[in-house]
Write a protein that binds this DNA or RNA. Structure first.
Ligand SMILES: [Mn+2]
Ligand SMILES: [Mn+2]
Ligand SMILES: [Mn+2]
Ligand SMILES: [Mn+2]
Lengths: 227, 227
DNA sequence: AATTAACATAAGGTTGCCCTTATTATTGCC
DNA sequence: GGCAATAATAAGGGCAACCTTATGTTAATT
């Protein structure tokens, strides 16, 4: 099987699919929204990727990655998360910028570089945003957590990962202390899909005495906490 | 002055110009050849870059970088050579692959990353291929050397840099020991633009007892030696 | 069963960057 | 001064990714 170079666009569509829902079907609309592209463009692209055997599109149901597509997608994830480690640990880049900066590098990284980088970093298992780094063969253990938006009111949970991709969203979460390792107590959930009221604390503390903050439910979806 | 993101193509044209002849005019044909693109395409591109104020095209004379264009070009060079240092010194990537691998990364590197990388590397002045690394403001001291193809017969000179960009050419030169620091004695130059006969030695030696090799003149142009 | 939101598809466009082929212009050289 | 190489320009295309606007189609909801 000859693996030709895939375009940045192609890689981003595949990565978005695996990020949105590993192994399940993804609605074209969700994909389009995530990539800031119209649904028509996404449809076109899914046709092209279908022809290349990277995705399977079931009209009116959604798209799913094929085995080959998932391999590519996981490899993109690997590259992006390895770069996040490097940027954070060695270049001291701000946490909020990691996703965006690594998202450029990921498409310009040859396999030799990816693997040498992994060795250089000591084969890390997790990126600074808390997500697992797929192995060279694409395998990885998915996080065993739930979105903060689904945590029980009154519970105190630890943040495992932050899944947002837009830098302004990441910034917003960061400013409220919502980073991996921090403890969060869900003080209150406003009715009718209203915002959450939270107490957020650094790791040592317990999410009770910390600063209180209000977080929209759609943003809380990006924060993965232990279940 | 708002600096919008320039395309990879644009950056490569500008970089090729500064590599071919800093501050002098470059013939469209030479540029086209270097980039493996037709002269017509190069002409088109020069029109576009002209409209953006990055180059000045004087028909039948050649193209030259504007001040703005040269700034961009030097910044691309900086990124590429910093990456070469990282790939070589920290990732232990093979010397022959450095140019190609760094040439991808250079276009995906934001200013924050470039500067943090420079700090991480200790602000190196030279890349593993021997070329100077422009400072953040674009300034750099050009190498004070001549192409090996212009060295006097009988002379023993030290290699300062290797300027080739095609990996197979770099490989060819590498196999013959033509790397920065090595000593070369020009044993003979065949007449009528014929090949050079060389003795190449590692740094300690003196380019006399080393292995003898024959090198085409067009390849010898890529090897910069002290003048 | 009808309605509606989401989705699919068709059609027509744009932009960037590449190509070929043909024609014209310039320049350096014999 | 004429010739050949080089360069420029014109014209016509291709392809990947995007877009809008319109028109069907499906499926979930009432
Ligand atoms: Mn990306
Ligand atoms: Mn490049
Ligand atoms: Mn069309
Ligand atoms: Mn045209």
């Amino acid at each position: 099987m000859i693996i030709q170079q895939l375009s940045e666009s192609t890689e981003m569509y595949l990565k978005a699919m695996v990020e949105l829902s590993d192994r399940e079907m993804v609605a074209i609309g969700r994909l389009a929204e995530r990539l800031s592209v119209t649904a028509v463009s996404t449809n076109e692209m899914m046709r092209r990727l279908g022809e290349q055997g990277l995705v399977k599109h079931t009209p009116y149901k959604g798209v799913a990655l094929t085995k080959k597509g998932r391999e590519v997608a996981c490899n993109v994830l690997r590259r992006q998360r390895l770069w996040e480690c490097f940027l954070y640990d060695h270049l001291k880049i701000e946490w909020t910028q990691l996703y965006e900066l690594a998202c450029s590098l990921e498409h310009a990284t040859a396999p030799e570089v990816t693997e040498a980088l992994a060795v250089f970093l000591g084969n890390p298992k997790t990126c600074p945003r808390g997500n697992p780094i797929p192995a060279a063969d694409g395998s990885f253990v998915p996080l065993n957590g739930i979105p903060l938006s689904e945590a029980a009111v009154g519970a105190t949970v630890r943040v495992l990962a932050v899944n947002a991709t837009a830098t302004d969203v990441i910034q917003h979460l960061f400013e409220r202390g919502l980073l991996p390792g921090h403890k969060v107590k869900v003080v209150e959930a406003a009715p009718l899909q209203g915002p959450l009221t939270l107490c957020v604390d650094p790791p040592e503390k317990n999410g009770a005495g910390g600063k209180e903050t209000v977080l929209g439910l759609s943003l809380a979806e990006f924060v993965i906490v232990e279940s």
